[in-house]
């Protein structure tokens, strides 16, 4: 249900986004990045709003959005768990860690728990291979990770 006043709110926000980033076709990626920065994901209402303001078809935004792995179409969980699977972490045993995180949280990588507490992502090289295997939770890096410590950490973040 979209009542009018809420739609106007979105349009205002869309105008703000376009004023800040620019509204030409070469700005599609930065526009999507700004939408994701604001909402945490590519919220359909705001994408449509930006499309309306710029006069670029919504389909063009979604076509570009689906190509790049940075963009997501569902809201993020409260805690973002990034499991590094760069080569150094892979060699140091990232796979068993990822298995442990998936089974502890009961979701696959790329998913968010139903209670919205955790989003699990697999990423490539966080640039601290000396600490492999590495896990990043809400921007903080935890190195030399073991399965026991990981489940303990996730337990703490759940609180």
């Amino acid at each position: 249900m979209k009542d009018k006043c809420c739609c106007n709110g979105v349009l205002d926000e869309a105008k703000e986004v376009v004023a800040h980033i620019g509204g030409t076709k070469d700005r599609i990626i930065p526009l999507l990045q700004e939408i994701q920065r604001r909402r945490g994901y590519l919220a359909e209402d705001l994408v449509n709003g930006v499309a309306e303001v710029t006069g670029i078809k919504p389909a063009e935004f979604f076509s570009v959005g689906t190509f790049y792995s940075q963009f997501r179409f569902t809201p993020l969980g409260k805690n973002i768990v990034k499991m590094c699977k760069g080569t150094a972490c892979f060699v140091a045993g990232a796979d068993p860690l990822i298995d442990a995180a998936e089974s502890y949280l009961g979701i696959k990588s790329g998913e968010t728990t139903p209670d919205g507490m955790f989003t699990l992502e697999i990423v490539s090289c966080l640039g601290c291979c000396s600490l492999a295997p590495v896990v990043m939770i809400n921007g903080k890096v935890y190195g030399k990770m073991t399965r026991a410590r990981l489940t303990q950490l996730l337990e703490e973040y759940r609180k």
Partner: peptide, 8 residues
């Protein structure tokens, strides 16, 4: 204060 220093 590089990425790896910060991580440590």
């Amino acid at each position: 204060l590089g990425s790896c220093g910060i991580a440590s």
